[in-house]
Amino acid sequence: MSEQTISQPSTLQLILRSNGFLIGAGLTAIFVLAALVSFIWTPYDATQISISDKLKTPSAAHWLGTDHFGRDMLSMIMVGARVSMAVAFVAVGVGILAGVPLGLYAASKRGGLIDEIIMRGNDLIFAFPSLLLAIMITAVFGPGAVNAIIAIGIFNIPVFARLSRGAALSLWQREYIMAAQVCGKSKALISLEHILPNITNLLIVQGTIQFSLGILAEAGLAYVGLGAQPPLPSWGRMLNDAQTLISIAPHLALVPGLTIVLTVLGLNLMGDGLRDLLDPKLRRVKS
């Protein structure tokens, strides 16, 4: 009944879809750029304390104002972007590099003992309240960006393992996979040659989503003091610093908060846009 499922997206929807992707990609690009530029240039030294300039509201000299130590907020946001993005990016990388092979392997041994062990292991990680485990890990190994990466990355592993296992299982039912088996190809080779290329779209979309979740998680860890350590600025700790001063200097809380919201929003919009752009092909492949 393919005729039944044809449905025309409304014009409104089409515009929103393509615009959503453009807005998302634009926002993401701005923050990635800010992070990269911060390596060579920031308006001020992000760690430079200048008590005489403290708690300035945004002005021509300090576009986003200054904090309670007189540090330039824009510079701190730029350097903070570096930390946030690096942590989230590497954590997604950890998830993909460990999770995808596990998922593909489990799918190729469907129903076997190893499949069972991998999937139960995944369930186990899901049973831990994610932030709690992150807190435990950073508590054990000490706070810092690297440990934040490990803590967040561990939770990405089951996400990618499940996703790739599920997608691979449905691909294993495809006849072209059986044709490859008839040609004597091993399961590992088939996973690499036929399955992995056909799930990359899914991985890209999920990757953007996990990236944005990573940024949120990093901010949370940094907020409770378990992220990147001073003097390196980080968005989450800027919020922590702002908390006690929120009634006298709300911009201290608004600037980093909005930065996080816009970054995550941008990534999510881009992910949704990618899904719409990549999925129709994927669906055609399936049908």
Binding site: R174, E175, Y176, M178, A179, A180, V182, C183, G184, K185, H194, P197, N198, R284, V285, K286, S287
Partner: peptide, 27 residues
């Protein structure tokens, strides 16, 4: 060798026909 029922799921959509039909040479 085998020919399957569904002409749509019998081929990896990412490969060209030449690569698809030479796959049995792997044997």
């Amino acid at each position: 060798q085998i020919v399957f029922q569904d002409p749509y799921s019998s081929f990896n959509p990412r490969h060209k026909v030449k690569r698809l039909i030479t796959e049995p040479f792997y044997t």
